[in-house]
Every structure is written in C-alpha cells, then in structure tokens.
Amino acid sequence: MKVFFKINGLDQSVEIQDGNTPLLWIIRDMLNLKGTKFGCGKAACGACTIHVDGEAVRSCSYSIKSIDGKEVTTIEGLGTEENPHPVQQAWIEHVVPQCGYCQPGFMMATAALLKKIPNPTDEDINDNIVNVCRCATYYRMRKAIHRAAEINSIPSNLKVQK
C-alpha cells in the first residue's frame, strides 16, 4: 500500500507491504530521521514519542497505515538550533540531557502537553509526562517544563530568538 502524509512540514509518501509496520521504523530506517528513538517497541518508555496532528503518540506502537493524510512532527521538525522550540530552549537553559537518548521523546511529550495545558502544574506534569529516563534527569526536566511554559507565554512579537 501507499501512504501519504506530511512529515515536518514536507509531503511524503511511503510504499509499504505491511500497513501495520510501526511508524517508528519508517521514520528511522526509511526516512532516516534518527532523532526518534527506539527504547522498548511496546509503548512503555516513550523514547519514540512524536506528534501526529499535534497529539503525542508513541510511534513504536502506531501503524504506518493510520497516518494516511495526517501530519507528523518529529524532534527534527520541532525546532532548529537557529530557531529552537520553547521546549528546546528551556532544555538548553537548564542543561537537561545527560546521555540524551530519552530526551527527544520527553521534549515531544512536553511540547504536546503545553499545547493542551499551557501552564501545567506539577500534578499535570506528573500525570502527563510518563516517559522513562534512566539517567533520571527528572528534576531538571520538571524545571525546564515550567520554564518552557513561561517562554511560551511571552507574546511572540516580544520573543528574543536565541
């Protein structure tokens, strides 16, 4: 089957035999976007978190056929060094990553959370950010999530781009 979708703003089509193939492998091995990580393949760690139509999903457990006509964003499309997403900017300010492997998943989950709840409480964060970080950078992540919400709340015309 052929699946048409948008990824990081660009039109993409994929010819695939098995429509149930997890999106993660299409993104990583066919489209060569390696920022989305494999951690478990069973929707249990969140390393593979991406956005489909703005919602956070775990791409290891999301079939390629179900994104037909949808818009996918990966960490590569979240922001750039020149124009970082507020979440990325906050992550940089708080020097969150250690090994870094889980971080794209956390940043994607956070970006989606902030769309739903622009100013999350600690409880909101506990309930919604349920990925696994083995380096256990949770303390800085929490601070960075609050900081990202703060950056977000600055009207964009006043925002100083890094």
Partner: peptide
C-alpha cells in the same frame, strides 16, 4: 554548558543505534 547539548536537544544521530 555541555559540549554535546545541542546534539542532544535537536536529535542528532549520535548513538550506536
């Protein structure tokens, strides 16, 4: 700041996998 910070925040393909 960590020298690998940007690679790790913008999803560079730096790992074994």
């Amino acid at each position: 700041a960590r020298v690998d910070l940007n690679d790790k925040v913008f999803g560079a393909p730096i790992f074994g996998m």
